[in-house]
Design a protein around this nucleic acid. Structure first.
Length: 483
DNA sequence: ATGTAC
């Protein structure tokens, strides 16, 4: 783990939203850049993520700065809330730049219902969702996927789910990469990973994963909101989950292979958690193939969950409910993308770890359902607090390879959070704020207490202030299902 | 994040 001290003199504030870490050490191949307002800076300055930004700046073939978003906190090798691009030709790819929960991401659904209508039947609705969606350690044995079906799922992602009867074909027009990571290679996914994934398709998991029923509290951009099916006083559903045990096992498997590759290629990095291999090497391609297959698992998972949530709404509200996919973003992923470097388009391996792609309107990589609008970005707050809908900008494309933050960001570790608050206490607080919680475990409630996170409004204020995203709407929770 | 530890 990184313990490198970062001298105060190496850090300078550029403007109210940006700081720069100059290359103060010969190991740094580029600068660091941190997006943080005055108020958010101390949490990053005093956290292990600061030295991780410096470590990542030393990765072979890094192009542009090592970036930390305002929700940054310490992760495995890379900070969570980190963005780094490497040259496809002579740079490396690092599993630590994606994280263990490959294609952890969020999907927003519009409902066509109003907040008073939903509030009147919130308990039966949450019960109907909870009956269909396994949480925590619960599996989905009735949906067991193995053998050739698993190969298809790993190759096709959300498209597999639609073909299997989960949701609508038009949903695919509103998912990053249309829900299919095109260079996925199921052959790179181990038997153990497949076994772990077999009974977890259409399950939520635990930790910060959730299904949240939200009211649209305020709209900043009515036209963009309307194009997303969001109106003030309306109801949306935010779904946050990833690739479950399968993605975790893929990351574990690939880290072992990367450690061997490092020795073979003679690559040296500041921290063994930054294990990596050349993007263009056999090992680099194997990682991206396995990671892509796990990404597809996550997209299939969110697609199946969408269908299950839709069934619950239908049971409670009948044909009044019209659940539609607004968009689905991956916030833990690495991908080869073409970006302008010194005026020329160059293929880069963009690592986004706890960071959301935020491409502007008209970008050719956006699926047709949102291309004219620009990429919707969803920033969940902590449990019981607000979430934001944003749009990507040209400035983000220029400065951060088209990326912004992914959430509020932890300020307390899970263990510290557990010491801080009892589950009953957290539950009572949320009830007092008018938020109903169905929780799978007491431990999860303590870990996810809002005090363990930064203020999401300040985090969003920084990326909006910096011009990386445009605000569209602020959503507040009514009911939440936690793992 | 994770059959929360090979």
């Amino acid at each position: 783990m990184s313990v490198r001290p970062v001298p105060r003199s190496a850090v300078e504030r550029i403007d109210p939203w940006r700081l720069r870490i100059r290359a103060f050490d010969p190991s740094m191949r580029s600068e660091g850049r941190i997006y943080a307002s005055e108020g958010l800076w101390p949490a990053i300055r005093d956290d292990g993520s600061l030295s991780q930004v410096v470590d990542v700046a030393g990765l072979p073939g890094i192009v542009g700065p090592s970036i930390a978003m305002p929700d940054a906190h310490q992760g495995y090798g890379f900070p969570i809330g980190g963005v780094a691009a490497t040259s496809e030709r002579d740079g490396v790819v690092s599993p630590g730049g994606v994280g263990f929960d490959i294609n952890c991401g969020v999907r927003l659904l519009s409902s066509g219902l109003s907040a008073p209508e939903v509030r009147a039947r919130l308990d039966p609705l949450l019960a109907a969702v909870a009956r269909r969606v396994p949480v925590g350690f619960d599996a989905a044995r009735d949906r067991s996927v193995s053998g050739h079906a698993m190969d298809d799922l790993l190759a096709q992602g959300a498209a597999w789910a639609v073909r299997a009867g989960w949701g609508r074909a038009e949903d695919l027009d509103r998912i990053e990469d249309r829900g299919t990571f095109s260079t996925a290679d199921p052959a790179m996914v181990s038997a153990r990973a497949r076994e772990r994934g077999r009974d977890q398709v259409g399950t939520l998991g635990s930790g910060n994963h959730f299904v949240e029923v939200q009211a649209v509290e305020a709209v900043d951009d009515p036209d963009a909101a309307r194009a997303m099916g969001l109106v003030e006083g309306g109801v949306a559903v935010l779904l946050h989950t990833g690739s479950r045990g399968l993605g975790h096992q893929v990351c574990t498997d690939q880290l072992v292979l990367m450690q061997q590759a490092m020795r073979r290629y003679g690559i040296r990095v500041a921290d063994r958690q930054l294990a990596c291999a050349p993007v263009a090497s056999e090992e680099g391609r194997a990682y991206l193939g396995a990671m892509g297959a796990a990404a597809n698992y996550a997209w299939a998972n969110r697609q199946v969950l969408t269908h299950l949530i839709g069934e619950a709404f239908l049971e409670v509200f009948g044909p009044l409910a019209d659940l539609s996919v607004v968009y689905d973003v991956a916030h833990n992923i690495a991908r080869i993308e073409r970006h302008r470097v010194d005026g020329r388009p160059v293929p880069l391996c963009v690592h986004r770890k706890g960071a959301t792609r935020a491409f502007p309107a008209g970008h050719p990589d956006l699926p047709i359902g949102v291309r004219a609008l620009g990429q919707p970005v969803f920033i969940p707050g902590s449990m019981g607090t607000a979430s934001w809908v944003l749009l990507g900008t040209e400035r983000a494309l220029d400065e951060t390879w088209g990326s912004v933050c992914h959430g509020a960001g932890r300020t307390l570790s899970r263990t510290a959070a557990r010491r801080g608050r009892s589950a009953a206490d957290v539950l009572a607080d949320l009830a007092a704020r008018g938020v109903t919680v169905h929780a799978g475990s007491r431990k999860g409630l303590s870990e996810e207490a809002p005090e363990s996170y930064k203020d999401v409004d300040l985090v969003v204020g920084t990326v909006v202030g910096a011009g990386l995203a445009l605000p569209v709407a602020r959503l507040v929770p009514m009911g939440v299902i936690k793992g």
